[in-house]
Computed example of a mutant assay.
Amino acid sequence: MEHDANRADGDIVQDFLSVADLLEEPQLAQLYAYLAREGEATVQNVMDDLELAQGTAYSYVNRLVDAGVLTVTDDEQPRRYAPREIDLTVTTAAGDREYTITPALIDAVGRRETDADIDTYIDRHGVAGLATALTYAIARERGEVTHRLMAEDLDISPLAAEMILQALRPVVHEHYDTEESGAGLDELDIDGDAADDA
């Protein structure tokens, strides 16, 4: 489901509409993120691992198949489902920012129901703001930025920056290789207090 300049506008709009439900409904985002981690699964796997009732699991899987973000990989019973890759770039309504909808962003949205810090951040800054915070979280885990720099860049409090960076840390480690840059967060000594602030 990657954006391709040669595709018809209707296809691009359909791609966006296909992922819109994922961004609006954390339960669907959580299911997509689960399948992105697993590669493929049956509805029974979904029920067991996400602790969903049978009717709910079938309903969510069918909605995501209908939206085009899941595919059936095996028609034999039990059917197996796999996620389609999502990589869609969106410009905010004001036209001042672009962000990319990726499995990591969908995973972060899916954690909204179980992580109050992510929920609050989305309420205050929207999904576009969460996408920006995720970019900073990746850079933070690679030792490239601090929470204070993020706070200054985004005009938010250092506490708010630290809270969302901590909340997004598991998402970053699930989806990105953060070992490449060398220094880990506990090894940083920026202004002599970064390790104390973490």
Rank of each mutant, 00 (worst) to 15 (best):
P26G: 11
Q27G: 07
L28Q: 07
L28I: 02
A29T: 00
Q30C: 10
L31H: 05
Y32G: 00
Y32Q: 00
Y32N: 00
A33M: 05
A33P: 04
Y34A: 05
Y34D: 01
R37G: 12
E38M: 14
G39Q: 04
E40N: 06
T42A: 01
T42E: 04
Q44M: 08
N45R: 14
V46C: 02
M47Y: 07
M47C: 14
D48E: 12
L50W: 05
L50V: 06
L50C: 04
L50A: 05
L50P: 02
L52F: 06
L52A: 02
L52R: 12
L52H: 01
A53Q: 14
Q54R: 14
Q54D: 11
Q54I: 07
G55A: 12
A57D: 06
Y58K: 11
S59M: 10
Y60P: 02
V61P: 02
V61R: 01
N62K: 10
N62E: 13
N62V: 08
N62R: 15
L64W: 03
L64T: 03
L64Q: 07
D66Y: 08
A67L: 13
A67D: 13
A67Y: 12
A67R: 15
A67G: 13
G68M: 06
V69H: 00
L70F: 13
T71D: 15
T71P: 05
T71V: 15
V72E: 11
V72H: 09
D74E: 12
D74A: 15
D74S: 14
D74V: 01
D74H: 12
D74M: 05
D74Q: 12
D75L: 09
D75G: 09
E76I: 02
E76Q: 11
Q77A: 15
P78R: 09
P78E: 12
P78V: 10
R79E: 07
R79Y: 05
R79L: 07
R80M: 03
R80W: 04
R80P: 00
R80Q: 10
R80F: 00
E85P: 08
I86Y: 06
D87I: 08
D87N: 14
L88Q: 15
T89V: 11
V90E: 14
V90D: 12
T91K: 12
A94V: 12
A94I: 09
G95E: 03
D96E: 15
R97W: 07
E98F: 10
E98H: 11
E98R: 14
Y99R: 05
Y99K: 06
I101H: 00
I101P: 02
T102R: 07
P103F: 06
A104D: 01
L105W: 04
L105C: 08
I106K: 09
D107V: 04
A108I: 02
V109T: 00
V109C: 00
G110E: 04
G110N: 00
G110D: 03
R111Y: 01
R112C: 04
R112I: 02
E113M: 11
E113R: 13
T114N: 05
T114S: 12
D115I: 07
D115R: 08
A116I: 11
A116H: 14
D117S: 15
I118D: 00
I118A: 03
D119G: 05
T120S: 11
Y121S: 04
I122F: 01
I122H: 03
D123F: 11
